[in-house]
Design a protein around this nucleic acid. Structure first.
Lengths: 223, 223
DNA sequence: GCAATATGGATAGCCGTACTATCTACGCGC
DNA sequence: GCGCGTAGATAGTACGGCTATCCATATTGC
């Protein structure tokens, strides 16, 4: 197919497709002439994955590029691809170097050790957790420990992660890796959105003033 | 205190503090002369909250502004403030209007109804979940149902949300609301980071090749 | 008392990200 | 054979979040 059909099938404007080609997010089409190229289903899939990661997952184009590169390279196993996508979506820590940060980072490492999780010692998520611990202490003015603040969420995350990772098992490497990427990025957003809704429900039961939003019957039951 | 001390106490550069003042994120200091103003502890707290939300929480300045406005207005109850912060941090849906989206949105509403959650029918997180369902179907090429895809995460989110909301109870409105805001934003990031680590652990057990982490920062960028 | 520095206020400029527009030379399809 | 589509290149745009500069006035260290 030509670029206009690629655009029509995915809903991505032609100039944007050209831009992605320039940026190396899409492999060039098969050249049939000096100013003609042909694209195939693989391009459609790629483009759909890019848009899902960017629009719904909020991943930067730079992050998408490194993920796609790893996906396309059979030298990377499924587990390697996961590490790469995590590095691509984890914000880099802003304030390493202060003593309180170093302490927080230490606590995080200890917590992860206690949980028995086998993760890269340099995983950026560890730094991010240190950032978060510092931030929550600064904002609340309390001396919350890592175990207090992260404990419940960590146990819950372990259960969920197990189920999610197992759910992609069983197909070929490419499909597993792609689904693991989608699961990591989109699943993270989903969990966050669900948590917000659950917060709203819980907050309404605890702090609500009884004025149910129009359409509700005012009873605040659950489960 | 004067602006330089405010800057020193929070680590925020003076020009940025001025910018926040211009943008209405910080209330003006108490004027003592034609070109002198005084700031107090309240400004320090505000600034720390702003930086936590922006740097660690990834919230936009626009979102921060609406949150701070609601926090400062005693007319908003704790539950109202939560709704406002959620609206501020939930990305607006990109593709409403297509039939598949409408169907997904319908399914999401049904799922939330089944769970017995009492949430605003127009909560943006519901639209976001519809986006996610459409995206995951597009990427994987399967017809996953909302219950399948969201079910486990929803139950888990409910447990966690309950504990989190209860943990802010018991102080004055201002403190509760502030901690609920911080809990929503920072707690969401924390859960996401923990989930990534748990994914890494689970993936290593299932897909790992046994070669334990040999350094490397994992980034595979270009340009 | 006085120079050096800081302050508040305003305006303008910068940087990165992600596109979007325009231009050119050529090919395809009726 | 003529108009639209295409590939490729270059340039421009929009937005968010700062950063720099300027000015008139205050404060501070000596």
């Amino acid at each position: 197919m030509r670029i206009s059909e690629l655009s029509a099938r995915t809903g991505v404007p032609v100039p944007t497709v050209k831009y992605y080609l320039r940026e190396g997010l899409l492999p060039p089409g098969e050249r049939t002439d000096v100013n003609q190229a042909r694209y195939d289903e693989h391009h459609v899939d790629r483009l759909r994955l890019i848009r899902a990661l960017v629009e719904v997952g909020g991943v930067s184009l730079d992050g998408v590029r490194s993920v796609l590169t790893a996906l396309a390279d059979p030298g990377f196993g499924v587990h390697d691809v996961l590490g790469i996508v995590q590095d691509a979506i984890t914000p880099r820590s802003a304030r390493p170097g202060t003593p309180e940060w170093a302490g927080a980072r230490q606590e995080v490492a200890a917590l992860v050790g206690d949980l028995g999780w086998d993760v890269r010692p340099g995983a950026p998520a560890l730094d991010q957790l240190a950032d978060l611990l510092v931030a929550v202490r600064t904002v609340t003015g309390t001396a919350t420990t890592a175990a207090e603040y992260f404990g419940l969420a960590a146990r819950i995350a372990a259960d969920l992660a197990d189920a999610e990772v197992r759910s992609v098992e069983g197909t070929d490497r490419e499909t597993m890796a792609r689904n693991l990427v989608a699961g990591t990025v989109l699943g993270g957003r989903a969990l966050d959105a669900l948590r917000r809704l659950a917060h709203e429900d819980a907050s309404g039961r605890l702090f609500g003033d009884g004025t149910a939003h129009p359409g509700g019957d005012g009873t605040a039951s659950r489960k």
